[in-house]
Design a binder for these strands. Structure first.
Length: 430
RNA sequence: UCCCUGGUAGCUCAAUGGCAGAGCAACCGGCUGUUAACCGGUGGGUUGUAGGUUCGAAUCCUACCCAGGGAGCCA
Protein backbone atom coordinates (compact mmCIF):
# COMPACT_ATOMS: atom_id res chain seq x y z
CA UNK A 1 0.00 0.00 0.00
CA UNK A 2 1.22 3.50 -0.87
CA UNK A 3 2.61 5.60 1.96
CA UNK A 4 1.61 9.26 1.53
CA UNK A 5 2.15 12.64 3.18
CA UNK A 6 -0.92 14.33 4.62
CA UNK A 7 -0.07 17.47 2.63
CA UNK A 8 -0.80 15.47 -0.56
CA UNK A 9 -3.88 13.67 0.73
CA UNK A 10 -6.25 15.47 -1.65
CA UNK A 11 -4.57 13.68 -4.59
CA UNK A 12 -5.64 10.30 -3.19
CA UNK A 13 -9.39 10.62 -2.68
CA UNK A 14 -11.01 7.20 -3.09
CA UNK A 15 -7.73 5.33 -2.64
CA UNK A 16 -6.60 3.24 0.28
CA UNK A 17 -3.35 4.74 1.64
CA UNK A 18 -0.99 4.43 4.56
CA UNK A 19 -0.02 7.33 6.86
CA UNK A 20 2.96 7.39 9.19
CA UNK A 21 2.53 9.89 11.98
CA UNK A 22 1.53 10.78 15.50
CA UNK A 23 -1.77 11.04 17.38
CA UNK A 24 -2.35 14.77 17.90
CA UNK A 25 -5.71 14.28 19.60
CA UNK A 26 -8.33 11.59 20.10
CA UNK A 27 -12.07 11.70 20.64
CA UNK A 28 -14.18 8.62 21.10
CA UNK A 29 -17.87 7.88 21.43
CA UNK A 30 -18.35 4.24 22.26
CA UNK A 31 -18.15 2.61 18.90
CA UNK A 32 -16.48 5.49 17.02
CA UNK A 33 -12.92 6.69 17.50
CA UNK A 34 -11.75 9.95 15.94
CA UNK A 35 -7.99 10.28 15.68
CA UNK A 36 -6.42 13.57 14.67
CA UNK A 37 -3.23 12.39 13.01
CA UNK A 38 -0.28 14.65 12.19
CA UNK A 39 2.79 13.65 10.19
CA UNK A 40 4.79 16.88 10.07
CA UNK A 41 3.26 17.87 6.73
CA UNK A 42 -0.29 18.34 7.96
CA UNK A 43 -3.22 17.12 10.02
CA UNK A 44 -6.08 14.79 9.14
CA UNK A 45 -8.93 13.16 11.01
CA UNK A 46 -8.98 9.36 10.92
CA UNK A 47 -12.23 7.60 11.86
CA UNK A 48 -12.39 4.06 13.16
CA UNK A 49 -15.84 2.43 13.27
CA UNK A 50 -16.52 -0.59 15.47
CA UNK A 51 -17.75 -3.51 13.41
CA UNK A 52 -16.28 -2.18 10.16
CA UNK A 53 -12.72 -3.14 11.08
CA UNK A 54 -11.40 -6.12 13.06
CA UNK A 55 -12.19 -5.74 16.79
CA UNK A 56 -8.49 -6.00 17.50
CA UNK A 57 -7.75 -2.90 15.38
CA UNK A 58 -10.61 -0.95 16.89
CA UNK A 59 -9.36 -1.80 20.37
CA UNK A 60 -5.88 -0.53 19.42
CA UNK A 61 -7.33 2.78 18.18
CA UNK A 62 -9.24 3.20 21.41
CA UNK A 63 -6.10 2.66 23.49
CA UNK A 64 -3.93 5.19 21.65
CA UNK A 65 -2.64 8.11 23.70
CA UNK A 66 -1.76 11.67 22.71
CA UNK A 67 1.46 11.75 20.60
CA UNK A 68 1.66 7.97 20.17
CA UNK A 69 3.37 7.11 16.90
CA UNK A 70 1.31 5.03 14.50
CA UNK A 71 1.08 3.65 11.02
CA UNK A 72 -2.56 3.90 10.02
CA UNK A 73 -4.16 2.77 6.79
CA UNK A 74 -7.53 3.71 5.40
CA UNK A 75 -9.58 5.04 2.54
CA UNK A 76 -9.35 8.76 1.79
CA UNK A 77 -12.72 10.50 1.67
CA UNK A 78 -13.85 14.07 1.25
CA UNK A 79 -16.10 14.91 4.20
CA UNK A 80 -17.38 18.34 5.20
CA UNK A 81 -17.68 17.25 8.84
CA UNK A 82 -13.93 16.63 9.10
CA UNK A 83 -11.50 19.41 10.01
CA UNK A 84 -9.54 20.09 6.83
CA UNK A 85 -12.25 18.68 4.56
CA UNK A 86 -10.75 15.21 4.15
CA UNK A 87 -10.73 12.21 6.43
CA UNK A 88 -9.38 8.71 6.55
CA UNK A 89 -11.79 5.79 7.04
CA UNK A 90 -9.53 3.52 9.05
CA UNK A 91 -9.00 -0.01 7.78
CA UNK A 92 -6.05 -0.91 9.96
CA UNK A 93 -3.70 0.52 12.55
CA UNK A 94 -0.27 -0.37 13.88
CA UNK A 95 0.81 1.45 17.03
CA UNK A 96 4.58 1.90 16.78
CA UNK A 97 4.98 3.39 20.22
CA UNK A 98 2.36 4.15 22.87
CA UNK A 99 3.30 7.56 24.27
CA UNK A 100 3.50 8.10 28.01
CA UNK A 101 1.27 10.72 29.60
CA UNK A 102 1.95 13.77 27.44
CA UNK A 103 2.87 16.92 29.36
CA UNK A 104 1.47 19.43 26.88
CA UNK A 105 -2.32 19.39 26.76
CA UNK A 106 -4.33 21.20 24.12
CA UNK A 107 -5.32 23.81 26.70
CA UNK A 108 -3.60 27.08 27.52
CA UNK A 109 -0.13 27.03 29.02
CA UNK A 110 2.29 29.59 30.35
CA UNK A 111 5.49 30.49 28.50
CA UNK A 112 7.86 29.17 31.18
CA UNK A 113 6.18 25.78 31.15
CA UNK A 114 6.19 25.57 27.36
CA UNK A 115 9.85 26.60 27.18
CA UNK A 116 10.75 23.74 29.55
CA UNK A 117 9.10 21.43 27.01
CA UNK A 118 10.33 23.30 23.93
CA UNK A 119 11.45 20.01 22.33
CA UNK A 120 7.81 18.84 22.37
CA UNK A 121 6.21 22.28 21.94
CA UNK A 122 7.65 22.33 18.40
CA UNK A 123 5.05 19.68 17.47
CA UNK A 124 2.14 22.11 17.77
CA UNK A 125 0.69 23.69 14.61
CA UNK A 126 1.67 27.24 15.52
CA UNK A 127 5.29 26.44 16.32
CA UNK A 128 5.66 24.26 13.22
CA UNK A 129 4.26 27.10 11.10
CA UNK A 130 6.77 29.56 12.54
CA UNK A 131 9.64 27.20 11.77
CA UNK A 132 8.42 26.77 8.21
CA UNK A 133 8.23 30.54 7.73
CA UNK A 134 11.72 30.88 9.23
CA UNK A 135 12.92 28.32 6.72
CA UNK A 136 11.28 30.26 3.86
CA UNK A 137 12.88 33.52 5.02
CA UNK A 138 16.34 31.92 5.18
CA UNK A 139 15.86 30.44 1.71
CA UNK A 140 14.61 33.78 0.32
CA UNK A 141 17.59 35.69 1.73
CA UNK A 142 20.05 33.22 0.25
CA UNK A 143 18.31 33.10 -3.13
CA UNK A 144 18.19 36.91 -3.31
CA UNK A 145 21.89 37.32 -2.57
CA UNK A 146 22.96 34.36 -4.69
CA UNK A 147 21.02 35.73 -7.69
CA UNK A 148 22.96 38.97 -7.35
CA UNK A 149 26.18 36.97 -7.41
CA UNK A 150 27.13 37.43 -3.77
CA UNK A 151 29.47 34.70 -2.51
CA UNK A 152 28.69 32.98 0.78
CA UNK A 153 31.83 33.19 2.92
CA UNK A 154 31.62 31.60 6.35
CA UNK A 155 33.03 33.71 9.17
CA UNK A 156 34.74 32.03 12.12
CA UNK A 157 32.76 31.55 15.30
CA UNK A 158 35.79 31.30 17.60
CA UNK A 159 37.54 34.66 17.53
CA UNK A 160 40.60 36.06 19.28
CA UNK A 161 39.00 39.35 20.34
CA UNK A 162 35.93 41.50 20.21
CA UNK A 163 34.81 42.67 16.79
CA UNK A 164 33.44 45.99 17.95
CA UNK A 165 34.76 46.16 21.48
CA UNK A 166 31.37 47.16 22.85
CA UNK A 167 29.12 44.29 23.85
CA UNK A 168 30.00 41.59 26.34
CA UNK A 169 31.29 38.38 24.81
CA UNK A 170 31.10 34.75 25.82
CA UNK A 171 34.57 33.41 26.46
CA UNK A 172 35.83 29.87 26.26
CA UNK A 173 39.10 28.01 26.84
CA UNK A 174 41.20 27.79 23.72
CA UNK A 175 44.06 25.52 24.72
CA UNK A 176 46.36 27.83 26.68
CA UNK A 177 44.53 31.05 25.87
CA UNK A 178 41.01 32.48 25.70
CA UNK A 179 38.76 32.60 22.66
CA UNK A 180 35.46 34.45 22.29
CA UNK A 181 32.27 33.46 20.53
CA UNK A 182 31.73 35.74 17.57
CA UNK A 183 29.40 38.72 18.00
CA UNK A 184 29.69 39.61 14.30
CA UNK A 185 31.36 38.29 11.17
CA UNK A 186 31.61 41.75 9.65
CA UNK A 187 35.33 42.44 9.93
CA UNK A 188 36.04 39.11 8.25
CA UNK A 189 33.52 39.93 5.55
CA UNK A 190 35.39 43.15 4.83
CA UNK A 191 38.47 41.04 4.14
CA UNK A 192 36.43 38.70 1.95
CA UNK A 193 34.86 41.61 0.04
CA UNK A 194 38.33 42.82 -0.91
CA UNK A 195 38.95 39.34 -2.36
CA UNK A 196 35.58 38.54 -3.96
CA UNK A 197 33.72 41.84 -4.34
CA UNK A 198 30.27 40.98 -2.97
CA UNK A 199 30.06 38.52 -0.08
CA UNK A 200 27.90 37.56 2.86
CA UNK A 201 28.00 35.35 5.89
CA UNK A 202 24.98 33.74 7.54
CA UNK A 203 25.53 32.21 10.90
CA UNK A 204 24.99 32.28 14.63
CA UNK A 205 26.08 35.26 16.70
CA UNK A 206 26.59 35.47 20.45
CA UNK A 207 26.10 38.33 22.86
CA UNK A 208 26.55 37.94 26.60
CA UNK A 209 24.50 41.06 27.31
CA UNK A 210 22.10 40.62 30.20
CA UNK A 211 19.22 41.84 28.08
CA UNK A 212 15.80 40.75 29.25
CA UNK A 213 13.37 41.97 26.65
CA UNK A 214 11.17 40.55 23.92
CA UNK A 215 13.74 41.59 21.30
CA UNK A 216 16.85 39.85 22.64
CA UNK A 217 18.48 36.44 22.54
CA UNK A 218 22.01 35.55 23.63
CA UNK A 219 22.41 33.37 20.52
CA UNK A 220 20.84 34.58 17.29
CA UNK A 221 21.35 34.33 13.53
CA UNK A 222 22.59 37.18 11.44
CA UNK A 223 23.09 37.76 7.70
CA UNK A 224 25.97 40.11 7.00
CA UNK A 225 26.50 41.18 3.38
CA UNK A 226 29.55 43.30 2.57
CA UNK A 227 30.24 45.02 -0.76
CA UNK A 228 33.38 46.59 -2.15
CA UNK A 229 32.95 49.78 -4.22
CA UNK A 230 29.49 50.46 -2.76
CA UNK A 231 28.53 53.58 -0.82
CA UNK A 232 25.81 54.17 1.78
CA UNK A 233 23.19 54.87 -0.87
CA UNK A 234 23.88 51.64 -2.76
CA UNK A 235 23.83 49.81 0.56
CA UNK A 236 20.33 51.05 1.42
CA UNK A 237 19.01 50.17 -2.05
CA UNK A 238 20.12 46.58 -1.61
CA UNK A 239 18.54 46.41 1.83
CA UNK A 240 15.10 47.63 0.75
CA UNK A 241 15.11 45.25 -2.21
CA UNK A 242 16.14 42.33 -0.01
CA UNK A 243 13.48 42.99 2.64
CA UNK A 244 10.77 43.47 0.00
CA UNK A 245 11.74 40.27 -1.79
CA UNK A 246 11.68 38.27 1.44
CA UNK A 247 8.28 39.61 2.52
CA UNK A 248 6.66 39.06 -0.88
CA UNK A 249 8.02 35.54 -1.13
CA UNK A 250 6.68 34.54 2.30
CA UNK A 251 3.29 36.02 1.36
CA UNK A 252 3.28 33.89 -1.79
CA UNK A 253 4.75 30.64 -0.53
CA UNK A 254 3.54 30.46 3.09
CA UNK A 255 -0.10 31.55 3.03
CA UNK A 256 -1.22 28.61 5.16
CA UNK A 257 1.45 29.14 7.78
CA UNK A 258 0.71 32.88 8.00
CA UNK A 259 -2.94 31.96 8.56
CA UNK A 260 -1.95 29.47 11.26
CA UNK A 261 -0.05 32.15 13.18
CA UNK A 262 -3.01 34.50 12.56
CA UNK A 263 -0.91 37.18 10.88
CA UNK A 264 -2.84 40.12 9.46
CA UNK A 265 -1.06 40.30 6.09
CA UNK A 266 -2.56 43.62 5.00
CA UNK A 267 0.42 45.72 5.98
CA UNK A 268 2.93 43.18 4.65
CA UNK A 269 1.45 43.34 1.16
CA UNK A 270 2.56 46.98 0.79
CA UNK A 271 6.21 46.24 1.56
CA UNK A 272 7.89 47.34 -1.69
CA UNK A 273 10.77 49.73 -2.45
CA UNK A 274 11.55 52.52 -1.97
CA UNK A 275 11.48 52.77 1.82
CA UNK A 276 11.38 56.21 3.45
CA UNK A 277 14.73 57.67 4.55
CA UNK A 278 15.01 59.95 7.54
CA UNK A 279 18.24 61.49 8.75
CA UNK A 280 19.12 61.29 12.42
CA UNK A 281 18.66 65.09 12.61
CA UNK A 282 15.14 64.78 11.17
CA UNK A 283 14.37 61.86 13.48
CA UNK A 284 15.24 63.98 16.51
CA UNK A 285 12.89 66.70 15.20
CA UNK A 286 10.10 64.17 14.70
CA UNK A 287 10.51 62.90 18.26
CA UNK A 288 10.50 66.40 19.71
CA UNK A 289 7.42 67.34 17.67
CA UNK A 290 5.66 64.26 19.05
CA UNK A 291 6.40 65.44 22.56
CA UNK A 292 9.24 63.00 23.24
CA UNK A 293 12.10 64.57 25.16
CA UNK A 294 15.21 63.68 23.22
CA UNK A 295 18.58 65.35 22.98
CA UNK A 296 20.77 65.33 19.85
CA UNK A 297 23.69 62.95 20.40
CA UNK A 298 21.84 60.20 22.27
CA UNK A 299 20.90 56.84 20.84
CA UNK A 300 17.24 55.90 20.40
CA UNK A 301 15.59 53.63 22.96
CA UNK A 302 12.97 51.02 22.16
CA UNK A 303 10.17 53.50 22.77
CA UNK A 304 11.76 56.14 20.54
CA UNK A 305 12.12 53.61 17.73
CA UNK A 306 8.45 52.71 18.00
CA UNK A 307 7.38 56.37 17.81
CA UNK A 308 9.58 56.90 14.74
CA UNK A 309 8.41 53.72 13.00
CA UNK A 310 4.77 54.62 13.63
CA UNK A 311 5.13 57.68 11.39
CA UNK A 312 5.50 55.40 8.37
CA UNK A 313 3.61 52.58 6.74
CA UNK A 314 6.82 50.99 5.43
CA UNK A 315 10.07 50.10 7.19
CA UNK A 316 12.07 53.31 7.61
CA UNK A 317 15.81 53.99 7.30
CA UNK A 318 17.32 56.30 9.91
CA UNK A 319 20.69 57.41 8.53
CA UNK A 320 23.70 59.53 9.48
CA UNK A 321 23.82 58.94 13.22
CA UNK A 322 26.28 60.86 15.41
CA UNK A 323 29.71 59.32 14.95
CA UNK A 324 30.19 59.01 18.71
CA UNK A 325 27.34 56.53 19.24
CA UNK A 326 28.28 54.19 16.39
CA UNK A 327 31.02 51.58 15.99
CA UNK A 328 34.63 52.67 15.48
CA UNK A 329 34.74 51.61 11.81
CA UNK A 330 31.86 53.82 10.58
CA UNK A 331 32.94 56.33 7.95
CA UNK A 332 32.31 59.96 8.91
CA UNK A 333 30.25 62.08 6.53
CA UNK A 334 32.94 64.07 4.62
CA UNK A 335 30.85 67.26 4.88
CA UNK A 336 30.04 66.81 8.61
CA UNK A 337 32.48 64.56 10.49
CA UNK A 338 30.32 64.58 13.64
CA UNK A 339 27.86 62.33 11.83
CA UNK A 340 28.64 59.10 10.01
CA UNK A 341 27.46 57.18 6.95
CA UNK A 342 25.50 54.67 9.00
CA UNK A 343 21.87 53.59 8.77
CA UNK A 344 19.48 51.41 10.73
CA UNK A 345 16.27 49.96 9.31
CA UNK A 346 13.30 50.10 11.68
CA UNK A 347 10.47 47.65 11.04
CA UNK A 348 6.84 48.80 11.31
CA UNK A 349 4.39 47.78 14.02
CA UNK A 350 6.87 48.23 16.87
CA UNK A 351 9.28 45.48 15.84
CA UNK A 352 12.25 47.82 16.07
CA UNK A 353 15.67 47.65 14.48
CA UNK A 354 15.99 44.75 12.04
CA UNK A 355 19.09 45.98 10.18
CA UNK A 356 22.14 47.97 11.23
CA UNK A 357 24.78 48.95 8.72
CA UNK A 358 26.80 51.59 6.98
CA UNK A 359 29.83 52.59 4.99
CA UNK A 360 33.19 51.66 6.53
CA UNK A 361 36.24 53.82 7.04
CA UNK A 362 38.64 53.32 4.12
CA UNK A 363 41.31 55.87 5.11
CA UNK A 364 44.15 54.03 6.91
CA UNK A 365 45.19 57.01 9.04
CA UNK A 366 41.67 57.66 10.29
CA UNK A 367 41.09 53.99 11.07
CA UNK A 368 44.34 53.78 13.04
CA UNK A 369 43.29 56.85 15.02
CA UNK A 370 39.87 55.37 15.78
CA UNK A 371 41.36 52.09 17.00
CA UNK A 372 43.48 54.14 19.42
CA UNK A 373 40.57 56.35 20.53
CA UNK A 374 38.49 53.27 21.31
CA UNK A 375 41.32 51.63 23.27
CA UNK A 376 41.31 48.58 21.03
CA UNK A 377 44.37 46.30 21.05
CA UNK A 378 46.36 47.25 17.95
CA UNK A 379 47.95 43.82 17.46
CA UNK A 380 44.52 42.17 17.25
CA UNK A 381 43.41 44.63 14.59
CA UNK A 382 46.63 44.56 12.57
CA UNK A 383 45.08 42.34 9.89
CA UNK A 384 42.03 44.63 9.72
CA UNK A 385 44.35 47.63 9.21
CA UNK A 386 46.04 45.74 6.36
CA UNK A 387 42.78 45.95 4.37
CA UNK A 388 43.39 49.73 4.25
CA UNK A 389 47.09 49.40 3.49
CA UNK A 390 46.78 47.19 0.43
CA UNK A 391 44.33 48.69 -2.04
CA UNK A 392 41.72 50.31 0.20
CA UNK A 393 38.35 51.03 -1.46
CA UNK A 394 35.01 52.49 -0.37
CA UNK A 395 32.87 49.65 0.93
CA UNK A 396 29.63 49.09 2.80
CA UNK A 397 27.61 46.39 4.43
CA UNK A 398 24.97 45.57 6.99
CA UNK A 399 23.78 43.00 9.48
CA UNK A 400 20.22 41.68 9.44
CA UNK A 401 18.85 39.99 12.57
CA UNK A 402 17.02 36.90 11.33
CA UNK A 403 14.86 36.35 14.41
CA UNK A 404 13.63 39.95 14.47
CA UNK A 405 12.61 39.64 10.81
CA UNK A 406 10.81 36.35 11.53
CA UNK A 407 9.03 37.96 14.51
CA UNK A 408 7.91 40.90 12.38
CA UNK A 409 6.73 38.83 9.41
CA UNK A 410 4.91 36.34 11.66
CA UNK A 411 3.53 39.06 13.93
CA UNK A 412 4.90 37.38 17.04
CA UNK A 413 5.38 39.53 20.11
CA UNK A 414 8.42 37.70 21.50
CA UNK A 415 11.53 36.70 19.58
CA UNK A 416 11.97 33.47 21.59
CA UNK A 417 9.33 31.69 19.47
CA UNK A 418 11.17 32.44 16.23
CA UNK A 419 14.18 30.17 16.87
CA UNK A 420 13.90 26.40 17.47
CA UNK A 421 15.79 26.33 20.76
CA UNK A 422 16.15 29.85 22.18
CA UNK A 423 19.07 30.82 24.37
CA UNK A 424 17.98 33.46 26.85
CA UNK A 425 19.50 35.18 29.84
CA UNK A 426 19.01 32.22 32.19
CA UNK A 427 17.72 29.57 29.85
CA UNK A 428 19.94 27.05 28.12
CA UNK A 429 17.57 24.03 28.41
CA UNK A 430 16.53 22.13 26.40
C1' U B 1 23.29 45.55 36.89
C1' C B 2 18.65 48.38 38.08
C1' C B 3 13.02 49.03 38.38
C1' C B 4 7.98 46.70 38.35
C1' U B 5 4.91 42.13 38.62
C1' G B 6 4.40 37.14 39.83
C1' G B 7 5.50 31.71 41.85
C1' U B 8 -0.77 27.25 45.12
C1' A B 9 -2.33 19.69 42.14
C1' G B 10 0.87 17.50 35.76
C1' C B 11 -1.47 22.32 33.39
C1' U B 12 -4.62 27.06 33.84
C1' C B 13 -6.20 29.49 38.01
C1' A B 14 -9.28 30.58 42.89
C1' A B 15 -8.76 31.03 48.20
C1' U B 16 -5.91 38.19 51.55
C1' G B 17 -4.61 36.04 58.72
C1' G B 18 -8.98 30.98 60.51
C1' C B 19 -11.04 23.35 57.31
C1' A B 20 -6.27 24.36 50.40
C1' G B 21 -10.53 24.40 46.03
C1' A B 22 -12.36 24.35 40.66
C1' G B 23 -11.77 23.34 35.41
C1' C B 24 -8.64 20.56 32.24
C1' A B 25 -5.14 16.33 32.03
C1' A B 26 -4.52 11.04 34.11
C1' C B 27 -7.31 6.55 35.58
C1' C B 28 -12.38 3.72 35.66
C1' G B 29 -17.31 3.59 33.41
C1' G B 30 -21.06 5.45 29.48
C1' C B 31 -22.15 7.22 24.51
C1' U B 32 -22.39 5.60 16.27
C1' G B 33 -20.19 12.11 13.79
C1' U B 34 -16.80 14.05 17.51
C1' U B 35 -14.62 19.37 16.39
C1' A B 36 -9.79 22.07 22.77
C1' A B 37 -16.26 16.40 22.24
C1' C B 38 -19.66 15.41 26.16
C1' C B 39 -21.77 12.85 30.86
C1' G B 40 -20.77 10.13 35.74
C1' G B 41 -16.95 8.54 39.16
C1' U B 42 -11.64 7.96 41.38
C1' G B 43 -6.82 9.36 42.75
C1' G B 44 -3.83 13.74 43.02
C1' G B 45 -0.63 19.17 47.63
C1' U B 46 6.23 20.07 52.19
C1' U B 47 1.37 26.64 48.65
C1' G B 48 9.38 28.33 44.87
C1' U B 49 13.45 27.81 49.06
C1' A B 50 15.24 29.26 54.01
C1' G B 51 14.23 32.00 58.20
C1' G B 52 10.95 35.34 61.11
C1' U B 53 6.10 37.63 63.21
C1' U B 54 1.50 35.28 65.18
C1' C B 55 -2.74 31.27 69.31
C1' G B 56 -2.92 30.36 63.99
C1' A B 57 0.57 32.00 57.63
C1' A B 58 -0.70 30.23 50.71
C1' U B 59 -1.89 35.16 52.82
C1' C B 60 2.31 39.68 56.79
C1' C B 61 8.08 40.64 57.11
C1' U B 62 13.48 39.50 55.48
C1' A B 63 16.90 37.06 52.26
C1' C B 64 17.66 33.99 48.20
C1' C B 65 16.06 31.18 43.67
C1' C B 66 13.11 31.14 39.27
C1' A B 67 9.84 33.39 35.65
C1' G B 68 7.39 37.60 33.05
C1' G B 69 7.60 42.87 31.54
C1' G B 70 10.78 47.10 31.07
C1' A B 71 15.62 50.18 31.36
C1' G B 72 20.59 50.14 29.67
C1' C B 73 22.95 47.62 25.21
C1' C B 74 22.04 45.95 20.64
C1' A B 75 20.29 42.63 15.45
Amino acid sequence: MQSVDISHIAEHVGEEVKLEGWVYNKRSSGSLVFLIVRDGTGFIQAVAVKGEIPDEDFQKCDELTQESSIVVSGKVKADKRAPGGYELAVTGVRPVHLAEEYPISLKKHGVDFLMDWRHLWLRTPRQSAILRIRHEIIGAIRDFLDEREFVLVDAPILTPSACEGTTTLFSTDYFDSTAYLSQSGQLYMEAAAMALGKVYCFGPTFRAEKSKTRRHLTEFWMVEPEMAWVDLDGNLKLQEELISYVVQRVLEERKNELATVERDTGRLENIKPPFPRVSYDEAVEILNKRGVEFEWGNDFGGGDETVLAEQFELPVFVHRYPTDIKAFYMKPDPSRPEICLSADLLAPEGYGEIIGGGQRIDDPRLLAARIKEHDLPEEAYAWYMDLRKFGSVPHSGFGLGLERVVAWICGIDHIRETIPFPRLLKRIYP
